[in-house]
Design a protein around this nucleic acid. Structure first.
Lengths: 200, 200
DNA sequence: AACTATACGGAACATCGTTCCGTTTATCAC
DNA sequence: GTGATAAACGGAACGATGTTCCGTATAGTT
């Protein structure tokens, strides 16, 4: 076995069938997660992709790796949306619009929020991954709002993202519009700074 | 076999060992749920109670039956707390105090909120059971607050309970005090009626 | 065309929820 | 006490699922 001395390039590039399968697995997992939730059986994902479960585990040793890979693509869109909104609207307005954007993201990923907050160690890397992508952008909106007095200054971006994700996660049986109503209420609390009320 | 004609009384009363075991199972399940979450293995619960899994399933045919039985005892305390607070405080204050009470209830039952909102049909009876016990009491506080103008009138008790339960559910890795901070923010939104902000 | 590293598929294993049934035992009648 | 009987018991058995493992197939190279 030769040691690749970080030279010109690896001897062999990734096999073409492996690349096709990797893409097929991502697509299959995306649809399976959407229909069955993030606990969709691995055999089911393999069947949709036309591969055996061994192939999935070779590329994604842990289930959380697969979940991260599937959602990361769309996550970036939601993250950059925050920057677009921050540039086009005043902070309080940008916050509401972005919350709606995050809500749509979560709504299309049944069980995603549950996994994000699961006590299961398998999902431990998830919160860091997602908060890392979203929190800095949101924090800039919050800082801008604190500066102009339209957003209370004692709310942390990470807290708010987790809260929004929890409230946005809808389930069968939920009253129609519950998620939207409660997010509106939460944001009403965020956009009025009244620190003295925190003393219970 | 004689047919008991709904006469004086049942011939035999419940066996003493059965009663002991029922109680032991409830205690074992309570501790197992607290330590391992509501997905604690049935074999584990059986081992803690010193009984076989068959004994558990005879008394609680579905897992959700056991969960309901375990939590109902403490649920009543939280429900009646609402009445006590409503009588002793003005509505807005009663609401905050009761939210804290609900938070303590949820905090001691890891995964309880997840089960309450799970898509799993096995947990389908749970939301009805718990909302049924809590919502009417909370609704009276909300109505009183709407009447004296301290609580916005467009918030439903059921929505609010679900929102509080979701926000209160803490997980390892959560920032310290996150739950309390976000609940405060939500209640800030509830205790100020500003319907025009709902138009995004 | 032959060779070999790479990737594949699915059997195998472990865990868990749930069902089933042969065995044990508390209670009752005497 | 003693025996009969229904109630209750425990854990094996079954099916589903996550994950690992390894003999086989094959893409890319020579």
């Amino acid at each position: 076995m030769t040691v690749p001395v970080e030279g010109p390039a690896p001897q062999r590039r990734k096999r073409a069938d492996a690349m096709r399968n990797t893409e097929a697995v991502l697509e299959a997992a995306k649809s399976a997660f959407a229909e069955l939730g993030v606990d969709a059986p691995m055999r089911e994902i393999g069947a949709r992709a036309g591969v055996g479960v061994g192939t999935i585990y070779r590329n994604y040793p842990r289930r959380s790796d697969l979940i991260i890979a599937v959602f990361r693509r769309e996550l970036d869109a939601t993250a950059s949306e925050a920057e677009r909104l921050a540039a086009a609207h005043p902070p309080a307005k940008a916050l509401r619009l972005w919350a709606a954007s995050l809500g749509r993201f979560v709504a299309t990923k049944r069980g995603f929020a549950s996994a994000l907050h699961s006590g299961d160690p398998a999902y431990a890397p998830l919160p860091g991954q997602f908060l890392g992508a979203l929190a800095p952008r949101l924090q800039r909106i919050l800082d801008a709002g604190a500066a102009d007095g339209t957003i209370r200054p004692d709310v942390r971006a990470e807290d708010l993202i987790q809260a929004l994700a929890r409230l946005a996660d809808d389930h069968p049986g939920d009253a129609d519009g519950r998620a939207g109503r409660m997010i509106d209420v939460l944001l009403d609390g965020v956009t009025v700074a009244r620190p003295e009320s925190r003393s219970l």
